Amino acid sequence: MSDDDKNGRVPDLPDDAHFSDEELESALAQFEREFNDDSDAVAKATSKAEADSDAFAADGDDIASSGNAAADDGDSVAKGAERALSFDDELEGLIGNRAKAAIISTGLAAADLLAAFCQMADISAHCLADERGAVAILHNLDGDAPENAARDLTQMITGMPVVLCVNRAAKLTATLYMAGEPGREFAPPLVLSSTPAAVEDLMLGVSTIDDLRDQGEHLIDTADFDHDKAMQVISDHTKFGRGGSTIE
């Protein structure tokens, strides 16, 4: 066994390494087996959603935003135009046809790996790393698109559980998905308390993607990935060897 294998590190791949569709399927299959072999996989996802519940405190005063009375006329016009353009989205949100925000919380360590999997599953999102698991901030919020994204991601990697959190029609929901099927529902504060504070603010409608960037959060956009780049990222997180491969 090599030092890399002993230490659990991913060995460097040669620059001309070819990662074929067959190898990708093999890697995903092995990844699924690792999750399925771990009897605690769903328990870990559940405890992740339920951990640190005392850390979440909903305070309406904290999420109230104040206008800037000193804004110049140009800013006022721009804001007025923005409000007019977003009126339809707000209306759709109020009647439940469009979510205000939606995230998929995972147990994956790396944001680029989550972004690669999202690209392979045709999911458009910004991905953010966190020590408790990478989060995908979904772009498509129309209808049941968030639920479809959670279904598609967990169908592609059938052994990986995720938690979908959606803010729709002024109501937050949090649902465990595995193998394409919805399961247990959680109290949303429990889920949000185990995500980065910036994500919690976004889900509550206090901040936007641009605000997250301004706060210095490193976001990875799936729009920057094509099929080949996604496969390369997966290969970078994959350790090949006898008996198959593992994705880290």
Rank of each mutant, 00 (worst) to 15 (best):
K48P: 03
K229D: 04
T158R: 14
S66R: 11
M120V: 11
L28N: 03
G143A: 12
D4M: 07
A223G: 10
D15F: 15
G159V: 11
A49G: 05
K44G: 06
N140D: 09
I63K: 07
A136S: 07
A109R: 06
M156E: 01
M120P: 01
T173D: 13
A134V: 10
A69I: 15
L153V: 05
A101V: 02
A197P: 08
C118P: 00
E90A: 13
M231D: 03
A57E: 13
S39A: 15
D210P: 00
K229A: 14
D224K: 15
K6S: 06
L28P: 13
D142C: 00
D224Q: 09
A136C: 11
I123F: 10
D40H: 13
L13R: 03
A198K: 00
Y177N: 04
F87Q: 09
S65M: 15
M156W: 06
A17F: 15
R213Y: 08
A51P: 02
L114G: 01
S47L: 09
A101I: 03
A129D: 03
F31I: 04
T154K: 12
F240Q: 00
C127I: 07
F186L: 04
E181T: 12
D142I: 01
A58C: 12
M1S: 15
A150L: 11
L114D: 01
L202E: 02
A187P: 07
E32R: 01
D112I: 01
E34C: 04
A145H: 08
R242V: 14
C127K: 06
L176H: 02
A57N: 13
G93D: 04
K239E: 12
R184F: 13
A71C: 10
K239S: 12
S124T: 12
S235K: 06
L172N: 03
L219C: 12
R213I: 10
L172S: 00
K48W: 10
A27C: 13
A179C: 08
A81S: 11
M156R: 15
N36D: 14
E248A: 06
D37G: 07
S20I: 14
A111F: 08
N140F: 00
I247Q: 00
N140T: 10
A101F: 04
P146Y: 03
L128Y: 04
G216E: 11
M120L: 14
P11V: 02
L24T: 02
D52A: 15
G60I: 13
F117R: 03
D21H: 14
N140M: 03
D226P: 13
E50Q: 10
R168A: 04
I209T: 12
A111R: 07
A51D: 07
A129W: 04
S66Y: 15
M160R: 05
A115P: 05
D236V: 14
F56W: 08
L164F: 04
F186Y: 00
A99C: 10
I209M: 07
F240D: 01
L202W: 05
E185Q: 14
A111I: 02
A134P: 08
A223F: 05
A134F: 06
A55H: 07
A170G: 12
A64D: 13
V191Q: 00
D37C: 05
H218P: 08
E200W: 02
D15R: 07
G241T: 05
R83A: 13
A57M: 09
H227Q: 06
D12I: 05
C118R: 07
S53Q: 09
G159N: 03
K44R: 13
T173E: 14
C165D: 06
D142K: 08
